[in-house]
Design a protein around this nucleic acid. Structure first.
Lengths: 196, 196
DNA sequence: ATTACACCAGACTGGTCTGTCTACGGTGTG
DNA sequence: CACACCGTAGACAGACCAGTCTGGTGTAAT
């Protein structure tokens, strides 16, 4: 009982957050498979016992890492919802964010796509976290197109996703500038159709 | 001297090819990092000594795997060159191949993108093999658009690549059908502009 | 002061990984 | 036959991996 109360009052300790912050940085820049728990532990300035107290396993930490990235995205869309008046403004806000990301220093592609590349089993919790994120993302974009009165919001969302994924991949391992400008052109074409 | 002659006459033995075939299958379907050399060795029905005789290291095998995939792509484009009369026909041939790939069973995305996701260092031989492939690919597509008289063949090639990479990513970890149709729409938009 | 908890320090297990090594059998050619 | 090369068979080293366990310190509330 006491434990429950204390846990509820202090849901996240410094060490727990530090571990997640380190994992986020290393997992994203170097890959979830390449980075080992020992490295996360040493760079987080915690001990193994503390690490395994908060995260049952490395896989569990990977899932939490993806969930925290998912949360960031959801918070961003929620902030757009409150700051924008129209679905089109929200959509343009998303595009602005994506296009800024791909040319930002330290960009290493989509964390979800990268993580999924190292877990082929669709039933694995990591893949399910990726699927959950992408499903939510796709539905949100589709809702925006629907709100704009697009005739085929599902198709438009697919077009949007194609451009987004392509820009993330191309910017990561090829030409960020080329991917950036191609992304803007592609989105412009999709948005141009939604007016008709 | 004798060795050189024999090697030139018999450039690839059965065992060497069997190893590469096994590696290609496992690396592509399960990821270059996940699959270990022991697994490749046992499924190739060879021994460790034979494996390390032909491939100096696992990384070297990964590079050969990517180079063989690169060779397949170059051969395919060369066959299009000889079978097609116009650059537009060649480009449509490429699109047909890509769109067929993404909805084919056993599709697991772009082998180069997947491999690159597990090697973050751009100086690594694996990354360089990926870059070499993508550079060649991009130049080839750009040449086709230029041959078609496109006003900005470089931009068109970027648009093409964006759609290709997006379709590969989306089909691999999401919706193959949606990615397939979105790819066709995106390519159609790019090709539609090249006529103008 | 006692209790409870967060955290530190690091040894240790058991498994897997890449890569090397020795020893032996088969086969075709000069 | 002798030689060179193909390949088999598997032990072995050394590194790294995830994960467990024991024991101890600091701190804040009861």
């Amino acid at each position: 009982m006491t434990t429950l109360t204390v846990d509820a009052v202090r849901p996240a300790t410094h060490a727990k957050l530090r571990i997640l912050a380190t994992a986020d940085r290393l997992f994203y820049t170097e890959g979830v498979h390449t980075v080992g728990v020992d490295r996360i532990i040493s760079e987080s300035k915690v001990t193994k016992a503390t690490f395994y107290k908060y995260y049952r396993s490395k896989d569990a930490l990977i899932v939490v890492y993806l969930q925290s990235r998912d949360r960031l995205a959801r918070d961003f869309l929620a902030s757009l919802d409150s700051h924008c008046d129209t679905p089109e403004q929200r959509l343009r806000g998303v595009v602005n964010e994506i296009s800024a990301q791909v040319i930002r220093g330290g960009f290493h592609g989509c964390p979800f796509i990268n993580a999924a590349a190292q877990f082929t089993d669709p039933a694995h919790p990591v893949r399910q976290a990726v699927s959950a994120h992408r499903d939510w993302y796709g539905r949100s974009i589709e809702d925006m197109f629907r709100g704009m009165g697009h005739a085929r919001p599902g198709d438009a969302a697919d077009d949007f996703f194609l451009a987004r994924d392509g820009a993330f991949a191309g910017a990561n391992l090829g030409d960020p500038i080329g991917a950036h400008t191609a992304l803007l052109r592609a989105i412009q074409r999709v948005l141009g159709e939604s007016g008709a």
